[in-house]
Every structure is written in C-alpha cells, then in structure tokens.
Amino acid sequence: MKVAIIMGSNSDWPVLEAAEKTLKDFGVEVEVVVASAHRTPDVVQNFAAGARDRGVEVIIAAAGAAAHLGGFIAAFTTVPVIGIPINATPLGGMDALLSFVQMPSGVPVATMAINGSKNAA
C-alpha cells in the first residue's frame, strides 16, 4: 500500500510528522509532497490526476485557513482523500475544519479533527 501526504506549506509538517511515523510503523509506503492549491495549482492538479498511476491508494491532504487543498485534490482523482484541518489562524483551525467538512456533493473528503494527522494515518 502507498499513501501520499500533501500539505500546502512546509509549516504544516510538525502536524503531519505523526501521520508519516504512524504509516511507516505499519509498513506503509509514504509519498510526501508540499504544494499549494492557491500558489501552485498546476502542481497539485498533476499530483492528484497522477496519484493512482503512481500506486497511491489514499491521499492525506492537510491545510489551514480556507483549507482548499483537500477538495481541490478530490476534484481531480477518485483516490480517497482524507483531510486534516490545520490550526493555522486565530480561529484555532475552525475555519479549516468547516472548509473541509462542507465540500460540495460529488467532491468527498473524509475529515479528521483539527491537527488530527495520527488518526488520518
């Protein structure tokens, strides 16, 4: 099995380290990518569209604030996407949580608790 972890910024890594460690402890191959749906949308689209061809079976997408990353990825792949809202604003991650859980019909993103990367793994 292979799981991809994608984050919009390197600053999200301290939250996602637990996911990578948990996956590796279970013997799961992990691909880690830093790419932003806002700053590098072409990179994210290519990442999502090619995930299945790279052997990725699940994508963990972490984002703070508007949390656009998980839904953007889900729009370009049928690989399951798990969203991790990141506490990155004065709203304590609630903005990200609400962005993830309110994806429109047809763009599913399973959503973890704020900073819940270990459970995503």
Rank of each mutant, 00 (worst) to 15 (best):
F72Y: 13
A67H: 08
A63G: 13
A51W: 07
R52I: 14
A67C: 09
G55A: 11
F76E: 12
G70T: 09
A66S: 14
V56Y: 01
A61N: 04
A49F: 08
T78Q: 15
A74L: 07
L69H: 04
A48Q: 07
E57I: 04
A75V: 10
A65I: 05
G64F: 05
A65Q: 14
L69K: 14
A49G: 08
I59W: 11
F47T: 09
A66D: 06
R54S: 14
A67P: 05
G71H: 01
A49V: 12
G64E: 07
A65C: 09
T78D: 15
A48H: 05
A63R: 00
A63P: 01
A63Y: 00
R52Q: 15
V56H: 01
I59G: 06
I73E: 03
E57T: 13
F47M: 07
G71I: 02
A61P: 03
V58M: 10
F76Q: 04
T78E: 14
V56N: 03
F76S: 03
A49T: 15
V58P: 05
A75C: 13
F76G: 07
G64C: 06
F76T: 04
A48P: 10
L69T: 02
A66C: 06
G50M: 12
E57R: 10
G71D: 08
E57C: 02
G71L: 03
A51F: 04
E57Q: 14
A67K: 05
A62T: 01
G70E: 02
V58Y: 06
A49P: 08
A61C: 12
I73G: 03
L69C: 08
H68Y: 13
R54W: 13
E57P: 01
F72H: 07
D53Q: 15
G71Q: 09
L69Q: 06
I59H: 08
A75H: 08
V56C: 10
A65K: 11
I59E: 12
R52G: 12
H68K: 12
I59N: 11
I60A: 07
L69I: 09
G70I: 01
V56R: 02
A63T: 01
I59Y: 09
